[in-house]
Design a protein around this nucleic acid. Structure first.
Lengths: 147, 147
DNA sequence: CAAATTAGTAGGTGAAGACCCATCATTGGC
DNA sequence: GCCAATGATGGGTCTTCACCTACTAATTTG
């Protein structure tokens, strides 16, 4: 009959909730695909970013900051360590703690991942002009802080 | 030391990709929780919306429109049918096809789910003023169509 | 010093999603 | 009429993710 019915129902696109959920999912998925080509996942990038921005963390503090389970953080740091992007050192003042530090390799890995993220961003936000992208970013920042 | 370190790394919040992914995820999660209280999931709502907006569909067309696997659509329609929100009828001109129709119960269920979605939206977009929300919606709409 | 708490680690669980394939009835091409 | 293609259905797999528990080593509390 008709060409092909691929339109999204207006009842859904009328909901900002739906658009956020949907656009966010495609952004997330595409970014994850890019990172996968580097053998990494979203949490790996988040950990590298946290270390770059705030310096060395105890593993527990890293987990708390990023809001994930400490037992999951173990595995992420494991993988980053075997990739040489992060270093584990026993804290000598409290030998239960493990201090996690970014290595130079980790820093340059983060730069590469950030470049990928920007590429995805260009693709996803293609329909928008530069000032519109800035506006979107500003709005999302406020929403993010408030949530 | 400091109070508690819960700040998100600026390296991440600088990326619109990250904000989209993150804000989208919380929107999605919160909406899913609300729908779960009605015993439904996101796809159920999407199917109801598609039927409300475009009228009866063959099951296959529903799957194509929403971009999911036909075999998964079977299960979703199963659940909607046992909830009485949808009716299955053999298409008499092509008896392989099953025509799916929205029932009055389905229509009012959709209204309830939409109300939930709006509630989530109010909560998520709380930091924004009304015109800002409209602007965000407009930007996301363009991004959504372009993606 | 004994007991309770904390940090890291290893492992398992359960739900959700996206896919994929085999089957069966029906239809359309030839 | 026969054969290929189609629509619906049931079944299964494979990840990913969040969560949870048990255990060990080290530290703090009282």
């Amino acid at each position: 009959m008709s060409v092909s019915e691929t339109e999204t129902p207006p009842s859904l696109t009328a909901l900002t909730t739906y658009l956020l959920s949907n656009v966010g999912k495609t952004a997330r998925t595409r970014l994850a695909e890019r990172l996968a080509e580097h053998g990494q996942r979203l949490w790996h990038m988040a950990v590298l970013a946290a270390l770059a921005d705030f310096g060395p963390h105890a593993q527990r503090d890293l987990a708390a900051r990023l809001g994930i389970d400490p037992s999951d953080m173990v595995k992420i740091v494991d993988e980053l360590a075997t990739a040489g992007q992060v270093e584990r050192n026993r804290d000598q003042t409290d030998r239960r703690r493990v201090s996690v530090t970014l290595t130079p390799a980790g820093r340059s890995a983060l730069a590469a991942l950030t470049a990928e993220a920007n590429a995805v961003q260009d693709a996803v936000l293609a329909p928008l002009t530069e000032p519109e992208r800035a506006q979107l970013h500003a709005l999302l920042t406020r929403v993010h802080q408030g949530g």
